[in-house]
Amino acid sequence: MSFIEFSDVTFRYPDSKKDTIKNLSLKIEQGELISVIGHNGSGKSTLAKLINGLLTPTQGAVTVNGITTAQEEKRIDLLQQVGMIFQNPDNQIVASIVEEDVAFGPENLGVPPEEIRKRVDEALKTVGMYDYRLKAPHNLSGGQKQRVAIAGILAMQPKCIVMDESTAMLDPIGRKEVMDAVKKLNEQFGITIIYITHFMNEAVEAHRVILLDHGEIKKDGSPKEVFSDYEQMINYGLDVPQSYELVKKLGIDACILEEDECVALLMQHLGVHGKA
């Protein structure tokens, strides 16, 4: 059985006339770094909330590590395993001091004080915010606030972190800080990351990309596989990474997603040799 499993899940908001998620089946293994893309209203955020049980399916079932999300009695257990980072960094920081906010999760779980101290320090060091541990959150930049939020989740020792458009309100520097932190968690601790974003440059950094459209999975595969059909991406109302767009506009038929690749390709076409 996979770590996260959606089996034939349908979800409809109580006051809505149509399904937000339609007959969706999905398997995610432990340790994957997945990005989820799709235009507004494609069901990305709903998918995220279905994973940690903030929403429960209208039909079908979602299981995480053997726990069915609809099981009320396993709720805390599920929430501890699946951490979630939201869009607005201001609205998820509870305490007025960075380290006290990071301690909030483990405190709720009833972890002994010395152990909390250890976890908080480790989590803050992992996201590179240890020097700010005594600062007030409202004096931090957006990227720093989101890293504090990530540390807060990390201190609960989750198996999976769902990022629900967590970089949407950040500037490019903040986005990079958050992306780097997330990749580090995935590589070092093997934490499964589900990264919901509408920045295609971020999406291609994942191992696997899932494209949602009207509550259905349209594409699921490596970044190259998903982005290969340029026209189709545009039809789904999505951007493509800038390098890809540039290459396409130059009339070169190649699927180029990363900047380095793009530079190498252009140099090759221009007949320039040397280091990029």
Partner: peptide, 13 residues
């Protein structure tokens, strides 16, 4: 509303 969600996600009970 968002804060309540975030607190719930951090196992506040």
């Amino acid at each position: 509303y968002e804060l309540a969600n975030a607190m719930e996600c951090r196992c506040y009970n």
